[in-house]
């Protein structure tokens, strides 16, 4: 009985110590450690929020085996920048407005943030954002990728995005016929 009680107290103090820390340490697949503010991590990533709430955060570095150090660095960088940025009041477009995509456009600093990334880094970051459940970062990176696709021919897109063309010539021609309007070059 007493032992149990003592154990409980010890756990309690540990939890308090954990709660006192305002950063979490994340460990990339290649073993590098990154610190990020607990508040930002919990706010921006549903996965990290779940881990923090569930107490599965490791003081010595929470293993994120799926994320390379470069991508994780960008994630942490994004979290820090997001914490410093002033949130804009722009909201999803209201119901009456027709013909507007229900997306919140990336803010200026977010645009710059993804613009400076290399091609590979961008794709790594998309995957990391997807893995960590970072909705906003996923939005921003997907926006960037979609912008890279706009105005390009299928051949150009395949080249840029490294997509293998597994159509036969006839199949491709059939699709082009079917969706002729989409391929018309104005």
């Amino acid at each position: 009985m007493e032992v149990d009680k003592g154990k409980g107290e010890a756990e309690e103090t540990r939890k308090v110590a954990e709660a006192d820390r305002d950063t979490v340490t994340l460990k990339s697949s290649d073993g590098k450690l990154f610190e990020v503010s607990k508040e930002a991590a919990a706010r921006l990533s549903t996965v990290l929020a779940g881990m923090i709430a569930g107490g599965s955060i490791d003081d010595n570095g929470t293993d994120l085996k799926q994320i390379g150090s470069e991508a994780l660095e960008n994630v942490v960088d994004y979290c820090n920048k997001h914490a410093n940025s002033i949130p804009s009041a722009a909201l999803i477009s209201s119901s009456i407005s027709f013909n507007t995509a229900p997306f919140k456009e990336p803010e200026e600093w977010e645009r710059k943030f993804v613009d400076r990334l290399s091609h590979d880094a961008l794709f790594d970051l998309v995957e990391a954002a997807n893995f960590l459940g970072m909705e906003r970062l996923l939005d921003v990176t997907c926006h960037k990728i979609s912008e890279m696709m706009k105005g390009k021919s299928p051949d150009q897109i395949r080249e840029v995005f490294n997509i293998k063309n597994d159509y036969t010539k006839e199949e491709l021609e059939e699709i082009r016929q079917e969706l002729a309007w989409a391929f018309y070059d104005d």
Partner: peptide, 8 residues
């Protein structure tokens, strides 16, 4: 729509 032509 045009992305249908990228790959299967």
């Amino acid at each position: 729509l045009a992305t249908a032509a990228l790959s299967k």
